[in-house]
Design a protein around this nucleic acid. Structure first.
Length: 484
RNA sequence: GCCGGCGUAGCUCAGUGGCUUAGAGCACCUGACUGUGGAUCAGGGGGUCAUGGGUUCGAUUCCCAUCGCCGGUGCCA
């Protein structure tokens, strides 16, 4: 006996089985269609990047902790260390810096896995797929507008139910620092606390901004030691409601009337809002919400976020913003860029929880069953006739009992089964069976002879008409499914 | 990362420091009922009791470590 190896999978990683992959690929295809409609082009980059490129100059130990390092057998030189990418934005910045010949504006989409060695949780894994949409080389707020519109159109196309796309501006938050008399370098700390507002509430945010507190588990939470006067000013900012973009902007202008340069930054936000009104993105699904800060330090202008109103527990399914400084790391000069990233896995988990996910386990629409091995030539011919007519068909590859073959079709959720035995063969016909209708009937029927004899879900058609008949049955099934 | 809880069949869970071969329900497989998924009936397979050490005459059960899962908390560039 040889020793078997345990079929293990590392922490936070998983296999995606056919049932998951079918739903996932359908979703990705829908998103891709939206992005290509916007004229974005595809890009692929390696999973592995140099660690210095991933980390950047400003990154500390904490940042590097969640990067998976990769062993490079070619080199033991520590400056050549490799790691798995943790997002798609940093690789994009590297591509931009190393391909000056690319036409600008360069607008690309990329769907690919990324890796973060974070603690796994529900809907949260260490390998997950991001679907990014970025626009590089344009300073104009029209580029930001387009990203926000793309987020809305994507969520609409995915039929996720009601959603809210929110935006704010890092530049406006910087105005807040000036307004409250807080040093610019403390901005990231302050914003990180403000970002927790929906989670921990105003009371704790206030404490964390000032003296700190001890939470329920006894952990001390360090305060930022702001003065109460500063916190009062911050609270006046947070009181601005996000329900109506025009009103939000008017209140913002009033609050920051005394701040130099405020008017120019608020103008940018207002232009974005007005473009979006003009395009039909009203307040019901697109809000100027000043409380979103995003944890990411590299954002420099507008920031974006989206959540599903029916599944708020899954948090933000889309996030992004303008990052005019990121390419500079690789190029030494600034290139404006803006974009958003969708969490494919999180969105799939949310849709599944909402019961909006299709759980097909097969790509075939027809199962050609094998009743009589001597008719195998016919079965093969029928299967390929369907395939050549563009109908996905699967041939059962052995002649096991018909009951077992139909159970297989049922288990895989193949909507139509095709039967051809000696009776049909003699009559020049085939039997088509609508599996879902049969399943619905099975739930009601009590008596076996009734179950076997009625068979309203199936009918015989002439052998030469079978391709048309299958296409017709599939269209009837599809229409019935759409109508609930 | 830190704190707490949990790991027994594919799933949900019983159970016991020594009666022999560790159980149930569901699921799965085989057969009966015409060549039809369901129901019914008859049968069947499947567990290193998470892994590795330790205590013991004896450990699935007690102890330790590791791994994994769940909850809370931190972090999320």
């Amino acid at each position: 006996m040889t020793d078997v190896v345990q079929p293990r999978i590392a922490r936070g990683l998983r296999d995606l089985l056919p049932e998951q992959m079918i739903a996932r690929q359908k979703m990705i295809e829908t998103i891709r269609r939206v992005y290509e409609l916007y004229g974005f082009v595809p890009l692929q980059t390696p999973a592995v990047e140099y660690l210095d490129g991933l980390l950047g100059s400003a990154a500390g130990d904490e940042a590097s902790k969640s990067i998976f390092a990769v062993v490079n057998p070619d080199s033991n030189n520590t400056s050549e260390r490799l790691g798995l990418r943790f997002d798609l934005t940093v690789p994009l910045a590297r591509v931009i810096a190393s391909h000056p010949e690319l036409p600008t504006p360069f607008r690309r989409y990329q769907v690919a896995p990324v890796w973060r060695a974070d603690k796994p949780g529900p809907g949260r894994f260490r390998e997950f797929t991001q679907f990014d949409l970025d626009s590089v080389g344009v300073e104009s707020e029209v580029a930001d507008t387009e990203i926000l519109a793309g987020m809305c159109d994507t969520l609409s196309a995915l039929d996720v139910g009601p959603y809210k796309v929110k935006f704010s501006s890092r530049a406006v938050l910087d105005l807040l620092l000036e307004f409250a008399g807080i040093e610019g370098r403390r901005g990231p700390d302050v914003f990180r606390v403000l970002d927790k507002l929906p989670k921990i509430g105003a009371e704790k945010v206030r404490k964390e901004l000032t003296t700190g507190y001890v939470d329920e588990s006894g952990d001390p939470i360090k305060g930022l030691e702001l003065s109460t006067g500063q916190v009062d000013l911050i609270e006046r900012f947070l009181e601005i409601r996000p329900d109506d973009r025009r009103q939000t902007i008017a209140q913002l202008r009033e609050l920051f009337a005394a701040v130099d340069a405020a008017a120019a930054q608020i103008d940018v936000v207002e232009r974005i809002s007005n473009h979006l009104y003009a395009l039909g993105y009203a307040d019901d699904r697109l809000a100027l919400d000043l409380s979103i800060a995003r944890g990411l330090a590299y954002y420099t202008g507008p920031v974006f976020e989206a959540e599903l109103l029916d599944a708020p527990q899954f948090g933000s399914v889309f996030g992004g913003g303008r990052y005019d400084g990121l390419v500079e790391r690789f190029l030494g000069r600034k290139i404006p860029a803006t974009g958003a990233s969708m969490g494919v896995d999180r969105l799939l988990a949310a849709l599944d929880a909402l019961g909006r996910l299709d759980h097909r386990k097969s790509t075939a629409n027809v199962l050609v069953t094998v009743l009589d091995r001597s008719l195998m030539d016919d079965y093969v011919a029928i299967t390929f006739a369907l395939r050549r007519a563009g109908i996905a068909a699967e041939l059962y590859l052995s002649d096991e009992r018909i009951g077992k073959q139909l159970r297989y079709a049922d288990a895989c959720d193949i909507p139509v089964s095709l039967l051809l035995g000696s009776d049909e063969h003699a009559a020049g016909k085939v039997t088509l069976k609508d599996m879902r209708m049969g399943k619905a009937r099975a739930e009601k029927v009590e008596d076996r002879s009734e179950w076997l004899e009625e068979r309203v879900e199936q009918r015989q058609v002439a052998r030469e008409d079978l391709v048309d008949a299958v296409a017709h049955m599939l269209s009837v099934i599809e229409r019935r499914t759409e109508n609930g």
